[in-house]
């Protein structure tokens, strides 16, 4: 097995497994520990949880999003592209097809290309914001830069590989590796906000709505 095969084969498997198991572990252990926080379950409400989530998943759905239009646009563009690109990228679907015979609808390559650029651009924006905005700088640690790098790398390398900029095969290996690192990082770092978001927001929405008869957006 050469390096490519290792990253495409066993490492990909390992990353996927770690991502799935890690995510499951984090969620389940949170759900169990939430029982010791005696109010969490009694306060939770599907209605108010969803009400809050709606406001926070729709662009400009909250007061603070309206107060920070640039951040809102960048953040939504970033997250949408980040989640959509890898799933609907033609090259990825071909891989799924080759290995599993799975196929689904793909986005035109020109679109995914732009979306990758958007992700990279958004990360650049986040980076600059971290350095320039004092309130962000003040809570920035080395780990925040590392996380940004972890997120930007798969997209940057993917873009470079697709356009055959730089040596193709090493770039491709780097891309796959970066993607795997990001996948593993999700459950084991602050990137876990990807799933915790839904819980924290729904809880706060419930506490504000069901218990305190107030809005939280």
């Amino acid at each position: 097995m050469d390096l490519y095969e290792i990253v495409r084969g066993p490492l990909a498997w390992a990353a996927l497994l770690l991502f799935v198991l890690g995510t499951a572990y984090r969620i389940v252990s949170m759900l169990i520990e939430a029982r010791r926080d005696k109010v969490v379950y009694p306060y939770l409400s599907l209605k108010y949880g969803l009400r809050s989530l709606m406001h926070w998943l729709i662009p400009f759905g909250s007061v603070n999003m309206r107060k920070r239009p640039v951040m809102t646009v960048v953040s939504f563009a970033f997250h949408i592209c980040l989640l959509v690109t890898p799933v609907f990228l033609l090259a990825h679907i071909i891989l799924w097809d080759e290995s599993w015979g799975l196929q689904w609808w793909s986005l035109p390559e020109a679109v995914t290309d732009v979306m990758s650029v958007l992700v990279v651009g958004a990360c650049a924006f986040f980076l600059i914001r971290r350095i320039v905005a004092p309130e962000v700088q003040n809570v920035t640690f080395l780990s925040d830069y590392v996380l940004l790098a972890v997120v930007v790398l798969p997209f940057l390398t993917g873009f470079l590989a697709y356009h055959q900029l730089g040596p193709y095969r090493p770039m491709l290996i780097l891309h796959i590796l970066a993607g795997e690192i990001m996948l593993v990082a999700i459950p084991f770092s602050r990137l876990s906000h990807m799933f915790f978001f839904f819980f924290t927001r729904a809880y706060m929405g419930s506490e504000f709505g069901k218990v305190r008869n107030a809005r939280d957006w």
């Binding site: 949170m30 309130e135 915790f196």
Partner: peptide, 26 residues
């Protein structure tokens, strides 16, 4: 004395500073 909420809150905060302008002190 603390459980899931404390942990999740601390682990989830992405250090984005978006809460800053909420505070009258700030």
């Amino acid at each position: 004395e603390s459980a899931a909420r404390l942990k999740v809150y601390v682990n989830t905060c992405v250090h984005c500073g978006l809460c800053s302008n909420a505070c009258h002190f700030y």
